[in-house]
Amino acid sequence: MLKLYFLLSYEFLKIGIFALGGGYAALPFLYYIQKQYNWFTVDELTNMIAVSNITPGPIGINMATYTGYTTAGIIGSILSTFAIVFAPFIFTITIIKIFNKFKSCSIINDIFLGLRPASCALLTSIGLQLFIQTVSNSENLSFSSMHFDYRAIILFLILIVPFSFIKKNPLLVIIAGAIGGIILKSF
């Protein structure tokens, strides 16, 4: 059991260090763990990913908690969650320390002048990608598997008008989207 705890922490520590670019970057690592250790089946893993998607919280954290729980119970889930945030925590604190030390340098301000529009562009491309995926009803952008889903555009137009004017409330937008999805897709 101790060995299992150790391996679990080790694998999730690795994911924390190497999974660059958000929760989905952890997926290949999880498939690797599945193959390497057989702690769970591929079907179970698919299920865990699906559940992580519908549970509140960052998807990467959800996957870590769930995989740890399935593999080694509550202690396993605590270890894997702790392990996956450990390295990024150290990295982030280090970056903040360095950043604060050089904050007064004009070069840092110059750099952020370039990073802010880059952030905007990144967000735009994420939004665009999600939009295309939802409208074309496909995960990958191959035209052969595309099914145009006009309902996505209808829901988009219904939601965009009120929510770009009234005081924004993210939870309200999420709830409205969920209800809209159920109504439009079920009938």
Partner: peptide, 23 residues
């Protein structure tokens, strides 16, 4: 399927939230 449809709708919400944030 209802949960599935709800999360399909939430994807649209996320797009809107991203747009509003950019704005």
């Amino acid at each position: 399927p209802i949960v599935h449809n709800a999360f399909w709708g939430i994807r649209i919400s996320v797009i809107i939230l991203i747009l509003v944030t950019i704005k």
